[in-house]
């Protein structure tokens, strides 16, 4: 891994589900420290694209490079990349049989071979960062959705990844809990974390994104800095989408 290389480089990425062409030659480069927001109608391939980056989905064509390392079907390589690429899911996906603290220390101890004391200290630091250190001994089922998602962010951070992927992190939350999760994400962005966020939160995109990528039907239609994207969209499809999400 070469930390001076671009964090993520996707070139002509193709993905099929049976005969359905989910990604049609996607190319996207994300520099270290860059914050990219990916938006687009449902079924446009946003989630599929970021799930290809850590190989939760296998791609069928094109190349994926993470810090200069090209992903192929080498299992060791995939594990190496997953250590550096954290992911936050729409459905939180916490481990319900472990406490919040155990959720956060599991991977550092097993994968990074951190000692328990160090892993717990790191976990508490990140739980404080997401503002729920007092819930450390509770189980996920005892927390609200917003709290669970913040634990999920802390869990990803505990691996001290270089890149964080967010797959619609607020879509499964009640409206009053969206803000507490977005606040945490804004803090992370301000601290220079490399982030790719699939989200419909256009306010968040305006506030922190370096670039907004608009996808439709498996293609990238438009990518631009937020002020151009929202102020002067070039494509009709982007304009239609924006009028639908911002129109009310």
């Amino acid at each position: 891994m070469d930390l001076t290389a671009p964090a993520i480089e996707l070139t002509d990425l193709d993905k099929f589900y049976g005969t359905f062409h989910a990604l049609k030659g996607i190319s996207l480069t994300v520099a270290k420290g860059e914050k990219v927001v990916v938006c687009g109608p449902s079924g446009s391939g946003k989630s599929t694209m970021i799930r290809c980056i850590n190989q939760l989905e296998e791609h069928d064509g094109g190349t994926i490079r993470v810090f200069g390392t090209t992903l192929d079907d080498n299992v060791g390589l995939i594990d190496e990349i997953r250590r550096e690429v954290g992911m936050v899911f729409q459905q939180f996906n916490l481990f319900p049989h472990m406490t919040v603290l155990e959720n956060c220390t599991l991977a550092p101890m097993l994968v990074r071979k951190t000692s328990r004391a160090d892993a717990e200290a790191t976990a508490m630091r990140y739980l404080e960062k997401v503002r729920i250190p007092d819930q450390a001994q509770k189980y996920p089922g005892q927390l609200s959705g917003g709290q669970q998602q913040r634990v999920a962010i802390a869990r990803a951070l505990c691996m001290q990844p270089e890149i964080l992927l967010f797959d619609e992190p607020t879509s499964a939350l009640d409206p009053e809990m969206i803000a507490e999760v977005l606040d945490v994400m804004v803090t992370l962005a301000q601290e220079g974390m490399t982030m790719i966020c699939v989200t419909h939160e256009m306010g968040f995109a305006r506030k922190v994104a370096d670039r907004v990528v608009f996808m439709d039907k498996g293609e990238i239609i438009e990518e631009a800095p937020p002020e151009d994207f929202f102020g002067n969209p070039k494509s009709d499809r982007t304009r239609l989408f924006l009028s639908q999400v911002l129109g009310h």
Partner: peptide
Amino acid sequence: VGRGQMEAANALGLSPWQVFSRVRFPL
């Protein structure tokens, strides 16, 4: 067992045996 929990474990870099023994089997 929800697919999500296994995906989360995979995404954290756990090996297939660790995913099985720590997440999939216990659940």
